[in-house]
Design a protein around this nucleic acid. Sequence first.
DNA 1: CCTTGACCCTGTAGTTGCTACAGGGTCCAT
DNA 2: ATGGACCCTGTAGCAACTACAGGGTCAAGG
Lengths: 137, 137
Amino acid sequence: MSEKMTSVDHTIGALGKLTGVNIETIRYYERIGLLPGAARNSGNYRIYDDRHVRRLTFIRKARDLGFPIETVRRMLALSDQPDRPCGEVDALVVEQMHEVERKIADLERLRAELDRLAHQCRGGLVSDCRIIEALSP
Amino acid sequence: MSEKMTSVDHTIGALGKLTGVNIETIRYYERIGLLPGAARNSGNYRIYDDRHVRRLTFIRKARDLGFPIETVRRMLALSDQPDRPCGEVDALVVEQMHEVERKIADLERLRAELDRLAHQCRGGLVSDCRIIEALSP
DNA sequence: CCTTGACCCTGTAGTTGCTACAGGGTCCAT
DNA sequence: ATGGACCCTGTAGCAACTACAGGGTCAAGG
């Protein structure tokens, strides 16, 4: 017996439901070479197998963590080379974490600024609105 | 005497330097109707006056606070109607603050997730990388 | 057998907010 | 008059999708 389980085939709609990825997005991933092309049935429908399901699930999880597409591409390439050290993968994760931390810091600064601004409203007319004043030179 | 100060004219490059806005961006703002068109000199150069400087400064500050362009457009429209109440302006600021807070919350969740992931690296081979495992189904 | 509705196909254009050319014209100081 | 800095229009590109338009396919019900 093969050690592989029987592989189920899916149309693009079924794959989308399984992975939570929009159909248009799946086709987009194929177009940019992120997800390998699928076999086609007699009516030219894409037919996906379990490897596609695994790969697209990987992509979705990585995207949900905010990794850019090009990084996901590199991660997939790495995951296809089992004897390379794990360090590069780890580095990508750490870099993404720093990126997220930078964004958080930027937004915290914005939040403080907006908070300051919002508290200046005295409910009068635009002509003497502190918010608009603050944005004017 | 007019109560207006003498208005200085600027080319697009000078306006860019004054406000810290890229020249291409200034032309873009004109194209989308955010900044009014400028007068032209005999060589068809745009010539800006102080009202443009004020308006573009307003735009830049609002954009720096993360307000979407369409919101900036509404704010500018409001600031042109001095006898309307300030409440709508305040509402836009508050909504933007909530938006920023939502984004921060999303990113905090990501950061925690990434942190968890990064700490799983044991420095081995890709074939037994916990990070890649975690992203696979 | 035929129809109907859900599904699928390709290809292209739109989104947001710029940024980057290409291929020209203008201004001014030397 | 010439060189370099500046300006013009128009278009295309970026990220990462999303939304059509205008078709073809499939399976179930009548």
